[in-house]
Design a protein around this nucleic acid. Structure first.
Lengths: 226, 226
DNA sequence: AGTTCCATGTCGCGG
DNA sequence: CCGCGACGTGGAACT
């Protein structure tokens, strides 16, 4: 990875057109060729960037006040042009391949835990299918309750209004299927926002908050029995 | 901005839990305090990060194989812990405030072009008003068709389900106005996703894909006449 | 390759 | 501060 602090101006022309006036910024070039222009603030997102695959060409300049021009081109015709007026600091280092990130607690894992034991959502619930397909997308969990009636479950890490909208659409579609009708809905998340609760209740959709650590604990306990 | 290349392990505990095994990475600390851990690849997104506002504390260590431990804490209780085993390179530089980015988007221009000639959406359409105000937000284009009936048009660059939901809400509202009723809807975008098409059709909402370059061409032609 | 949905989304605007 | 929509969204998973 190569890092350069430089006084520069930047122009991007691709999915949109953007221009950065002259200022001091940090230029980052990674091993895969991707280039990022960072200001000294504004979270982790760069001001401008160009992801791989692309080609970076650096042209030294004789022009007054221009040390070099970096041109990054993507196969799709996007162009990022960095005019370097002055290099102020520089750093270059081999880093090798990163072993990668281990994540824990995303929606997929939560859905997995709930599918393994739907009774943590509501007593008597049995799983029919995960990712049950409909014309407008897959329902996270399709279950049947103790009375044998269908229950559609939408799982989110954080429960907000659009999650309720999503479940509402699924229910509209599912309730047209004579084999399933009537289908009720339950909205499940680690934390459900007040407005999402109100909207769910208004539409006769149940909502349940689940504790991720607790679910993981239950799973561990279940495994320990074998 | 401060940049450090170091052999390190990283743990994040907050919105999720994540762990990075020991490897060489680039640590970036911006003036606003935000911290990012970059690998030498994977586009511009860091492996781990913590945005401002937060507090960074660095504790030197006597422990074997540990130079220092950086702890970043956010007010919301998120914690990013970086165990630095060895610093390999370092760079520190004042950069000043960035003058900021000038963007020139396509979104607004598309609506402008369609307003200039609504017949590109449907034959006989005449513009009543752009950004027609309702209590739940402005409708992009309000038109009348050849029969004099009201038509609400929602314009998006990319047509997805949310756009259909938005137009549906507007139609619900507009159809309560006796001066407008009945109002039908047309969903317009450069590209409309299959699921959005299904939902639109299901709700008797029309959908039209338009070609931005073609529209621009039509406009150029019109201008050339003068 | 095309399509869909998730994301520690981030970011900006308006109430 | 919250809610909502846009984003050069990026990225993964699945068809």
């Amino acid at each position: 990875m190569r890092v350069v602090v430089a006084r520069c101006t930047v122009d991007y022309d691709g999915r949109l057109t953007a221009h950065l006036p002259e200022a001091i910024r940090l230029l980052m070039v990674k091993a895969d060729g991707c280039v990022a222009v960072h200001a000294d603030g504004g979270a982790y997102k760069p001001l401008n960037w160009m992801n791989a695959p692309n080609t970076l060409t650096v042209v030294e300049s004789d022009e007054d006040g221009v040390e070099a021009v970096w041109t990054v081109r993507s196969p799709k015709g996007e162009v990022l042009a960095i005019t370097v007026h002055e290099v102020l600091a520089e750093l270059d280092h081999e880093m090798g391949v990163d072993p990668g990130l281990q994540k824990d607690g995303v929606e997929a894992h939560l859905q997995e835990l709930l599918a393994a034991d739907p009774t943590t959502i509501a007593d008597g619930l049995r799983l029919v299918r995960r990712e049950f397909p409909t014309d407008i997308g897959p329902v996270d969990l399709l279950c049947r309750d103790a009375d044998g009636e269908a229950v559609a479950v939408e799982v989110k890490r954080r429960g907000e209004i659009d999650g309720v909208e999503q479940l509402t659409r699924y229910l509209d579609f599912l309730n047209r299927d004579p084999m399933l009708r009537p289908v009720r809905g339950i909205f499940v998340a680690q934390e459900i926002r007040p407005q999402a609760r109100v909207l769910a209740e208004d539409r006769d959709i149940g909502w349940v908050e689940v504790d991720y650590d607790e679910l993981r604990g239950i799973e561990s306990d279940a495994l320990r029995l074998f």
